[in-house]
């Protein structure tokens, strides 16, 4: 092999080496290291001691773990239904030339540019029991009986926080469906209209099936986002009252950084990781499928 040819085979690695080293050190390495930490009693200061599976044994007996798991599940179920349906409906409504379509779209995706911290603070004020907008409105229209301590009632608090997440998510889903609709051949829609299909039937049998790839991605991303949920809970309630709004990410943070049980925190994040892994694989499988089409 000539020197030049060897050199040209080396080229991709020269491009890759720097970013890859950084990625391995800060992302891939830490991922594996967490598994090790979950088998130790690390407290953040002293050297970690190996203690086997004891963190996991404790975790599976911890009631807060099950509350968090259930709350993550609520989050997932809400996220894969409400924003998906609402986002799709909005995309269908706004994917035609109606007066002010641009302003409508901008209104729905504007929450996306706010940080979750800002969303949490603004909504925290809306939910405030005495003077917040929601209770004030309920009282003003004579429905004062429905006024609640939205963030202090342990049956309502999780839903109240999820609602904020949904408010932010709808615009995102709408954007993805709008992009997907760009790829739908208008000829197919016209053809089904000619065949006498009503608007709903066209949507049900022509447009929606064509949007399946978008729907798969939207659902998978929504689930991954739900499992990442942290900022809103941290800012609005810190998981309270009595852990009733705890989610895994927040539970982990509190154990690790407030209680200095870093080994235990690592065990929680491993469980969170394993759940996410299922959906990461679905996403990768989708990518692989599109790769094959090239």
């Amino acid at each position: 092999m000539t020197r030049e040819k060897r050199l040209s085979q080396l080229t991709p690695y020269l491009f890759l080496i720097l970013p890859l080293i950084i990625y391995l050190i800060w992302v891939i390495g830490p991922m594996f290291y967490t598994f090790y930490l979950s088998l130790t009693n690390w407290d953040g200061v002293s050297t970690p001691d190996f203690i086997g599976l004891r963190n996991y044994q404790r975790l599976f007996k911890d009631p807060v773990f099950y509350i968090s798991l259930k709350n993550n599940l609520k989050w997932i179920l809400s996220f894969i239904t409400i924003p998906v349906v609402a986002g799709l409906a909005l995309a269908m409504a706004l994917n035609r030339s109606i007066p002010g379509a641009k302003a409508f779209k901008a209104s729905f995706y504007s929450p996306l540019v706010l940080s979750l911290v800002v969303c949490g603070l603004i909504w925290g004020w809306m939910y405030q029991p005495a003077n917040g907008l929601i209770n004030a409105t309920l009282r003003a229209v004579g429905l004062g009986a429905l006024a609640r301590g939205w963030l202090s009632d342990k049956n309502l608090v999780m839903w109240a926080i999820i609602a904020v997440g949904i408010w932010r998510q709808v615009g995102y889903v709408m954007v993805l469906y709008l992009a997907g609709l760009q790829g739908v051949d208008p000829g197919l829609i016209d053809a089904s209209k000619v065949d006498g299909c009503s608007g709903w039937l066209t949507f049900r049998h022509v447009i929606f099936p064509l949007l399946t790839p978008v729907t798969v991605i939207v659902v998978v991303i929504s689930i991954i986002d739900s499992l990442r949920a942290f900022d809103l809970v941290s800012v609005m309630t810190r998981g309270g009252p009595y852990n009733s709004s705890s989610v895994l990410a927040n539970f982990m943070y509190i154990q690790a950084f407030n209680n200095y049980k870093m080994g235990y925190g690592a065990a929680i994040s491993v469980v969170l990781f394993l759940i996410s892994l299922v959906f990461i694989f679905i996403y990768l499988w989708r990518v692989l499928q599109t790769e094959m089409e090239y």
Partner: peptide, 8 residues
Amino acid sequence: PFQVLMLP
């Protein structure tokens, strides 16, 4: 999920 990277 960010938590899996946090401690390391």
